[in-house]
Amino acid sequence: MENKSTDAAMVGVGDINQLPEECISHVISLTTPRDACVSSAVSRTSHSAADSDVTWERFLPSDCASILSRAVNLVEYASKKELYFRLCEHPLLINRGMMSFGLEKSSGAKCFMISARALSIVWGEDERYWKWIVLPESRFNACVELDRVCLLEICGKIDNKILTPHTTYAAYLIFKLAPNAWGLSNPFQRTEIILAGDIVSQHCVCLNIREREQFNPWWDRPLPGGDTEEMSDEVILPKVRGDGWLEVELGEFNSGDGIDGDVSISLTENKGGHWKNGLIIIGIEVRPKH
């Protein structure tokens, strides 16, 4: 009997469900959003704790209220968990619609997209070279389409302090190609990321691989008058996103411990006066890289 009583007491001591819900919520909040969702299925007590505002408040950015105050439209939600997943699945327009904000689902790290309107584009306001268009599939109220230029220079900036600390981020140009797009495969485009004045990433990209393959099936060989000296570099190619847009990585960086300064992200192609057109830009996205 003594042994049975002792065993029962030990079971009670080791049962996390005997703890106050606030304690369980605090413990779960020290894990990850993914772990919290798993914990929700363990028991009725853990379900309540894992879904509580105490838990999900910890997973939301500390400046979330400030960011929500800059949203274009009022954000309504019934719980912090609902808000978390809304931000993961439906990024908000903020800063007068010039930027979008969301969260990376598995970690809660902040994601931003800088709209085409907020980018610095050489000749971007000259209708002879670029035109502003409205596309229903774009999250922003306008995209910019390249009409015809021989000098391509696109740059975006974001304050490093608004990003999640100690996170490896990558920047991506989000774009489409018009059916008649040409001149975007040769020479390759150069990308650069500068963090607080220091160059942290540089590489080459090819925005229009279809054109490259059409004119040169052995596309890893240089085209006449093109990028001979760049062929030794790794060339980053675009990928199709789930939303139907294309994206190409412009480089990566680590946000560090709140490093003071801007992250400057650029894509350029200014060699030899090569004309090009048909590039449609929605913006530059900055999100955690896995």
Rank of each mutant, 00 (worst) to 15 (best):
C88S: 05
N95D: 15
S106L: 04
F101T: 09
V54E: 08
S29V: 01
L135H: 11
T55L: 11
L74C: 09
E125W: 12
E82Y: 00
A118P: 02
R86T: 14
W56Y: 10
L87P: 13
M113Q: 15
G97K: 10
K81R: 15
F112P: 11
V75E: 13
V42M: 08
S120F: 08
T31D: 05
R96Y: 13
R128K: 15
S43N: 06
S48T: 07
S46N: 07
I94K: 04
T31Q: 09
E76V: 07
S115W: 05
L135M: 09
D51E: 12
L119P: 07
R34H: 12
R96V: 09
R34G: 08
E127I: 09
D63R: 08
T55Q: 05
S40E: 12
R70K: 12
N73Q: 14
R44T: 06
R117Q: 14
D53A: 00
V42F: 04
Y77D: 01
A41N: 06
A109P: 02
H47T: 03
P136Y: 04
C111W: 00
R58N: 02
S115G: 14
G124L: 09
P61A: 04
C37R: 12
E125Q: 15
L92G: 12
T31F: 10
L60V: 06
R44E: 02
D35I: 09
S48W: 01
L87W: 07
T45Y: 01
D35W: 12
C88W: 04
L60T: 04
S29I: 02
H90W: 00
E125I: 01
F101I: 02
H90E: 06
V134G: 09
D35S: 14
T31G: 13
S39W: 14
I94G: 11
R70L: 13
K110Y: 00
S29W: 05
W130H: 10
L119Q: 07
I67A: 00
L87M: 13
S106G: 04
S62I: 08
L92P: 07
M113G: 11
R96G: 10
Y84P: 06
P136V: 04
D35C: 15
E125R: 15
W56D: 11
D51G: 15
I67C: 05
A50S: 13
S79T: 15
S100L: 10
W132D: 07
W132G: 06
C88T: 01
D126W: 12
A109Y: 10
S62C: 04
W123I: 03
R86C: 04
T31C: 15
H47V: 00
E104C: 06
L60C: 02
D51H: 15
S107P: 03
D51V: 02
W132Q: 10
H90A: 02
T55R: 08
S40W: 01
E127R: 15
S43Q: 05
G124I: 03
S66K: 11
E76Q: 13
N73Y: 12
S52N: 08
R128E: 13
V72Q: 14
L87D: 12
S66W: 05
D53Y: 01
L92T: 11
I121N: 10
P33I: 01
